[in-house]
Structures are given as C-alpha cells and as structure tokens.
Nucleic acid binder design. Structure first.
Length: 838
RNA sequence: GCCGGGAUGGUGGAAUUGGUAGACGCAGUGGACUCAAAAUCCACCGGGGGCAACCCUGUGCGAGUUCAAGUCUCGCUCCCGGCACCA
C-alpha cells in the first residue's frame, strides 16, 4: 500500500483536534495544578506577514519535537502560539492594496494558522495571543500608566533616529549600521519629543543577570548583550577652568593616568564651548570649525579613515593633581553623547590622544611604566602605552600598580570634591513612540492645565479606532481623527488631547509569554498563580537576529513588571535559549527579492509534513544555517517511506501486545536477537540524550536510521521464531515512539496498523535498560605506540592482565614490536590496549 | 582594535569525559530484481601504495603536553557574527 501523507496527516490532525490532545492542564487556582513537573516551550511568535516560510517551519519543528518529547516524558507542557500582529507591513499593505490593516492582519492570521496546523504542530491554540486585539493591548496600556507613575516611562526632547522610509522614529537597537532594521533606509537625526522607557535604570541588573544565563543561552547572544549594554567603570573628574568658577567635567576609565593629562578635548556640541571662546581671538575660527563637525554626518564605516582634527579654544583649565595648566581643544573625535562630551587627554597612554598630541605638538607626559617592556620616554615613544604598569611622575601615587592607583585616586577626588567614581553605559533609554497608526495607542493625555496626564485605569483600553482613512504617504491618520484625539483630562475633566503616537511593536512582544501563561483574570493582566507556575519559559526558540532587540527588551520588561508588582519573583523570562540558524538556498538567505524561496505548502503537498519536518531537523544541528536541497528532502522522503514499508510489512506478523519488560532475553545474548535488543536500547539512549542534553536532532535521527537499517537486515531471521517476533515487536514499538516527536503522523498511523494499544505519542518515553546493552564479547582495539594495529573480540569481563596478554599474542602486534623493547602496556577497560615499545 | 563563534572527505555533517577519524544522509560507483526503465534491496565510497594480508598518509598552519590529540596548551592564518574615535 502506497504511502499517502496527505490522507494520513489530515486524518491524525483531525483526531488530535477532536481529542484535545495538546491542551496543557489547567494552571488556574491552586489545587487544580497537575501533579507533574511543568515545561513551558515557546517559539518566538510570528509576525502575520502572509504565509509561513521555511524559517518558521524550522523554528516550530524544533519546538514541536521538544514539546512532544517532554509530554511523553511526563511533563505538563505549555506550548502556545500567537501573533505579533501590530506593525508596519500591515499599513503598507493597506496603502498598496486598499485593505484595512486589521482586515489584512486577521486574514493573514487565519491563513497562516491553517498552514501551521497542516504541519501537525502540537500547539495549544486555546491560549492564542493576538497583540492587535484590545484584550491584549489594554494590559500593555495599564503597564504604561504604572510605569509613568513610577517615572519609568517619561517624555524627553532629544535628537532621535528618524527613518524617512517608515516615517517614524526608531530605537537605537533598531538602527543597524546607520540603517533602518526594517526598510534599510539611511536613518536621519531629528530633534523630537518622545516617550521613553527607562531601561538604563536596569542596566546593571540586565548585565549582571547575564551570568545566570551562562550555559543555557548561547555564548554569542550573551556577548552581544554585554557589548550592547556596554559598561565602563571609571571616574568623573572636574577640571577647574582658569579665570572662572566653573569646571570642565570629564569621564575617564583611567583615573590612574590623571597626572599624565596634559590637555583637554571637548566635542563640538559641548555646552561650555560658546562661553569658552567668547571674546577670544580664536572665537570665529573655532566656531566655524565646530559648526563644520556638527554638520558633517559621519557614516559609521568612514570613522576609521577620518583624520583627527582639533582647534585650540584659547581657554585653559587646571589639572587638580599636578596644578599644570591644560589647554582646552575642540576635537572632532569626541562624542557629544557619551560620558560628559569632554575627555582628559593623556597622550602617553591613549593612542588617539597620542596621535593628536604629535599632530599639534602638545606635551606628552609618561605616568605609567610597563613592568616588562623597555622604559617609556616621551621623546622616543612611537605609540601610546595603554596597558597596565607602575605609576611614575604621579606625586604620592608614584610606585603604585595602575589598578590600585585607580581606587586611590578616586578616593582622593571624592575627598577634595573634584570628582567621584562613576560607571558609564552605552545602553540608552528605549524610545517607544512611533508616528504610525497600526500599533497600541499610548494612553497619555495632554491637558492645557494639568500637562501630561496618564489616562485613568478604568478608562482603558484606549481603543485604536478602526474607522480611519490611511494616508498614502504612510503617516498616521490619528492626528487627523478628532474622534480619537479629542478627550477630557483624566485629572481636571477639562478639554484635552490624546497622544496620537503608538507604541513600538517591540513593547507588544516584550510580555506576550506572560499572557500565554496567564489565566483569564478580569482585574489583573495575569493570574499570579498561573504565572508563578509556568514561568520562566523553560525553552525559548528563535532567530539570533533578536539577540539584542526583543531579547533585551523582554528581559527588561519582566524586571520592570516585577518591580511594579505585576509578577512576583521572576527575574528572567527565558531560562534556556536556542537560536536556530537560517534556512538558506544556494548559500544565501531565502528572500522574495532574490527569488530563491521554497514554499512550505508546496513541499507539504509533494512530500507531506512529516518529511518536511524531518528534513529541517536532519539537515544540520539547529544552531547552524543549512542549505535547502532537493536531494536532501528526497532523502528524508525515502527514509519516511522506508519506515512505512517496514511497518506495513510487519503488521499482522508480530505480536501487538508488548511484553511488560522489553524482552526476556538473557543479558549479553549473542546472535540477531541479542543484537537487535542492544541496538534498540542503544538507540533509545542516544535519541533521549541528544534531544535533552544537546538539541542534536540530526544525530538523534541518524541513530533512528541506523536502527531502521538494522531492522531491515534482521527482519527475516527474527520473524522465524516466536521469541524473535517478540524482539522485533519491542524494537518496532520503540522505533515508533522515538520517531513520534519528529514524524508524529507516520508514527501514529503505523502504531495503529500494528495493533499496538493507545497512541504512540501518549506512550511514556521509552527507557533504556543498562543490562540490555551488555555484551559477552567486546571489541577491543589494539594499538602499538598509539597506532591501530589490530582488533580483538574478548570477553567483556576480561582482566587487565588478560587483555594485555591477548594483545601481545596478536600476530600483527608481534610484527610491530619485533626487535623493540616493550616499555609499557595500557588497558582502557572495554576500549583498547596500547603497547608502548621502542 | 575589543568580544564571541568557527575551519573535518566530492558534499551536509558525526566523533558526548583525550582512546577505532569520517556515524547518518546526499552525490557517485557496482551488483540483484526487471524485456527495459523507475522504484526497491544489497555492497563499495578521504588520498597514495599493494594480488592480498596489510603499509604509509590524513581533521586550516606551526610548535608543545601525552602511552594516545579533531579534542588539551602556546603561537599564527583565514572565515562568520557583534561592538567600536566609548575616552
């Protein structure tokens, strides 16, 4: 009978749905909690772009294996799915095709849901989350209001990343190499007043908690987050201006080099600049120079080649440690937005300052001598010494190690009131305002009398109006929709105007995993019992492109919600993270513009879902990119059919009732029955281990293939005896159970046809028996001086001396040690003998 | 420049704690079945030598540790990813 995946798969999908096979046990009020350990398995939810692509298939195939595997292992599994359904493509589609963003989004959701169900994933659709629905974003608005009350959400006017393509601002995380993450337009700077979330308040905790995730998150994701947060520890130092009361404040990570600071460099945007140059002869020239820097937008890739330039302002300040007068320069390499926008220049110990000092003939003063290198002398130095060493020319600190000098000098700064220890962060607050329509309204109100006021909680949700005319230029229609923006002040009830910006969609995705777990509480967004039960997510799976965007925001959000009292005792949302690689075609990422896409639906129509899933899991380990190949999926299809033929052939020939203990064979039995039993149990051990410890689905599948190959060869002989048929039945039952997370439809169908009781996927995960793996004879490798020379079949329990004697008696070994003196013989039990001779 | 990851046959990739390098698949070659083909089943498949038994060689490069190194140490090369005039 021909293998017809369409018929089989649709049949089982219907059965699963009717039986509610994948419902997680209720998690609500205490007492309902199932008496099983929980496992929360989650994939990064999709944006409903239209139809699913191979990247989705790979993502969910990985998650589905884990979910099904954990269910079989006896866990109470939560495996939900949802839609990140606000966002720009919906608006763009609306503009292009004249459909409403809501209609476009909901149609896509319906279509993609069907596609996903056709793949046979075991998601619990009873907990579906759709972020564009009021019943979702109303809670987000509540969080926002509470964040406002705590000062965690605030408005600020600042230069912002503006994407001219999307007509909206972007967060720093959404600018990649100076371009918009979504549309690739060059990002401009625009001075705007925007809403921010104070993620910088959590910088220290976000950084420190990465250590807790070490080992269960990929190292590169942790590294990327550390880079992004960008902690640098140092000091702030005030340098008093000569002839004035003010001081120039700098940030430095090298307070130990303060005695070597011979001049100052400030940015062209420094607030003190005008005052410093006013009335001096340099005034005009410096002003023109600074204006030139401000105007020249520097492309990130051009930074390296940019010549360092500066101008003396005419003003000086005093080094509080040496008393020396330090000229203040405007320099084009000093960033206005980092630290204080001013730098103490230590030419001897900073390469940029060194280059600058040489160019403009400024003094170089050595204050650190390296321990092992030649002595540094200002006249002969060719480059700055940036490493550690011992302080020289540093008054009372001379002779100290640079590390301890840092602390001593910071202490002194604090005593004399000239500075303090300080930590700087690269991380900036998160701009969440978007000048677009299709997003969650920001629940703030502008009142002429009361100013900026949060909406009242009982007035939530602030509903995004659907009756609007989208504008062809992409700008939000909300500022021109009086029905929306006209409101009354929540405080004084006077006339007021609503905020018409919407929230960044990354806010929506920062907490959806909580919503999945939450019970249906009307008063709170979450039932805390349910949250405490399910969270954290035990296994999170998604693309590495979110390493700093979504994954950083979500971590922050959970901490902020915890501190606002919405969740308790939850510090990190994702206990373990798997970042899957991309599905490539001819070595490059599949994309519509390149025309190298493979449509999953077409593949399912040709090969069936089981084959498509199997190939995605077998082609490479999940973290790595892999190339989609026609011959590869053909290979997977061949294997699926091979299992199908084996199963059909055995139906009716092997017992349908499985013996309680796998087999009554004595341990170590030789011959085909013993071999089959050993292979069955070795496979059980390998597959379980590969899924649990290493997410090595490719090697798990390879092990199953080996078992199938063996069963093909052993089949005829095993069918010849009742005992053999029992061995075969046990092996086939294990095979189908092991396969069921990977190819669930195939497994169930064959399970049924072989007459086994229940369902393959409901069966407890097979447990391997140590004694079934045991052998009477083992293969021992014999080496001479580490080179393989022979193999011996020896009794498993042979003594060390016995094994060594057997090795020395071997003809080929004798040949290789002839004429040599035997120095040593080693026996690694059960593995090898190495004869050392010379 | 700093941080993280990687380099193994024709090819995707195995080798879990230092212990048989190349599992499993793809491609290829040969055989069985067939009038024939497809499909299927079986076998071979790093390079060199040999009729064969076997021998030499081989995991980016160079040293080292070890009875034994793809795996550990040191020094490089190249590739991928992140950060970066960050003081």
């Amino acid at each position: 009978m021909k293998y017809d995946p369409q018929e089989i798969e649709l049949k089982w999908q219907k059965i699963w749905e009717e039986e509610g096979a994948f419902k997680s046990s209720p998690s609500g009020p205490a007492g309902e909690k199932p008496d099983k350990p929980k496992f929360y398995c989650l994939e990064m939810f999709p944006y409903p772009s239209g139809k699913i692509h191979m990247g989705h298939v790979r993502n969910y195939s990985i998650g589905d294996v884990l979910a099904r595997f954990k269910r079989m292992q006896g866990f109470n599994v939560l495996y939900p799915m949802g839609w990140d359904s606000f966002g720009l493509p919906a608006e763009n589609a609306a503009i292009q095709h004249g459909v409403h963003p809501a209609a476009w989004t909901l149609d896509n959701i319906a279509y993609m849901k069907k596609q996903m169900q056709r793949l046979g994933y075991s998601h619990d659709w009873g907990r579906e989350v759709t972020t564009c629905r009021e019943d979702y974003y109303r809670w987000e608005q509540l969080f926002f209001i509470r964040f406002m009350e705590k000062g965690l959400a605030y408005r600020k006017k600042a230069a912002q990343n503006w994407c001219p393509g999307c007509n909206t601002v972007l967060a720093n995380e959404q600018v990649l190499e100076g371009r918009c993450w979504r549309c690739d337009s060059a990002v401009e700077q625009k001075e705007l007043t925007q809403w921010f979330l104070r993620i910088t308040d959590y910088a220290e905790e976000l950084l420190a908690d990465l250590d807790k995730l070490s080992g269960s998150w990929p190292e590169r994701v942790l590294a990327m987050q550390r880079n992004w947060i960008g902690k640098s520890v140092g000091a702030e130092i005030d340098f008093p201006l000569e002839g004035g009361r003010e001081a120039l404040r700098v940030f430095t990570t090298r307070p130990d080099t303060v005695f070597g600071a011979t001049f100052m460099s400030i940015s062209a945007e420094h607030p003190l600049l005008e005052g410093l140059i006013a009335g001096r002869k340099q005034e005009a020239e410096v002003r023109a120079f600074a204006a030139g820097i401000r105007k020249a937008a520097i492309a990130p890739e051009a930074v390296d080649s940019l010549e360092k330039e500066g101008r003396f302002t005419g003003a000086c300040c005093e080094n509080p440690f040496t008393g020396a007068s330090m000229p203040i320069w405007v320099a084009n390499f000093v960033l206005a937005g980092y630290g204080t926008g001013a730098v103490m220049a230590v030419p001897a110990h900073d390469q940029r300052d060194f280059d600058f000092a040489r160019k403009y003939s400024l003094p170089v003063r050595v204050v650190i001598q390296p321990e092992k290198e030649a002595e540094l002398r200002p006249e002969s130095m060719e480059r700055a010494w940036e490493g550690p060493g011992r302080l020289v020319n540093s008054g009372p600190y001379t002779g100290m190690e640079s590390e301890s000098a840092k602390a001593a000098i910071i202490k002194r700064l604090e005593e004399i009131g000239r500075g303090r220890g300080r930590t700087n962060w690269r991380l900036r607050d998160w701009n969440i305002s978007r000048q677009r329509y299709w997003g969650a309204p920001i629940p703030a109100v502008y009142c002429e009398r009361c100013g900026v006021v949060p909406e009242k909680e009982e007035n939530l949700p602030v509903v995004l109006p659907l009756e609007v005319k989208t504008r062809p230029d992409g700008r939000s229609p909300l500022p021109e929709t009086p029905e929306f923006y006209r409101t009354v002040c929540p405080r004084c009830s006077g006339p007021a105007r609503r905020e018409t910006d919407t929230m960044d969609t990354f806010v929506d995705s920062s907490w959806y995993f909580l919503r999945h777990a939450a019970g249906e509480s009307a008063k709170l967004p979450f039932d805390l019992e349910a949250i405490n039960y399910w969270l954290p997510v035990d296994q999170y799976i998604g693309g590495v492109e979110h390493a700093i965007l979504h994954l950083l925001y979500a971590r922050f959000f959970v901490k902020a919600l915890r501190d606002a009292g919405f969740v308790r005792g939850l510090d990190e949302p994702f206990a373990s993270l798997l970042t899957q690689g991309m599905v490539l075609m001819d070595g490059s990422k599949m994309s519509k513009s390149k025309g190298n896409t493979v449509d999953p639906s077409g593949m399912i129509a040709r090969y069936g879902a089981d084959t498509v899933r199997l190939f995605c899991l077998f082609a490479a380990p999940p973290e790595r990119d892999f190339d989609w190949t026609e011959s590869g999926i053909e290979g997977a299809y061949r294997f699926v059919q091979r299992v199908w033929r084996l199963g059909l052939d055995l139906a009716g020939k092997i017992p349908a009732s499985l013996p309680a203990s796998a087999c009554a064979l004595p341990p170590g039995e030789e011959g085909v029955m013993g071999e089959t039993l050993r292979r069955e149990h070795a496979c059980i051990r390998k597959v379980g281990g590969d899924i649990t410890d290493r997410f090595q689905f490719n090697t798990a599948i390879a092990a199953i293939m080996e078992l199938v190959n063996h069963l093909y060869q052993a089949r005829d002989e095993l069918l010849g005896s009742a005992e053999g048929r029992a061995v075969l039945a046990s092996a086939v039952a294990s095979l189908l159970a092991l396969l069921s997370p990977f190819t669930p439809h195939l497994s169930e169908e064959l399970w049924l046809r072989l007459g086994f009781a229940g369902r393959a996927g409901d069966r407890p995960w097979p447990v391997y028996r140590e004694d079934a793996l045991r052998r009477k004879l083992i293969t021992v490798v014999v080496q001479v001086n580490g080179k393989l020379r022979s193999r011996l079949e020896l009794p498993a329990d042979i003594s060390s001396a016995g094994a060594e004697a057997a090795a020395l008696a071997d003809a080929n070994v004798k040949k290789h040690v002839a004429g040599l003196e035997i120095k040593k013989v080693l026996y690694v039990p059960g593995k090898l003998v190495n004869v050392v001779a010379s």
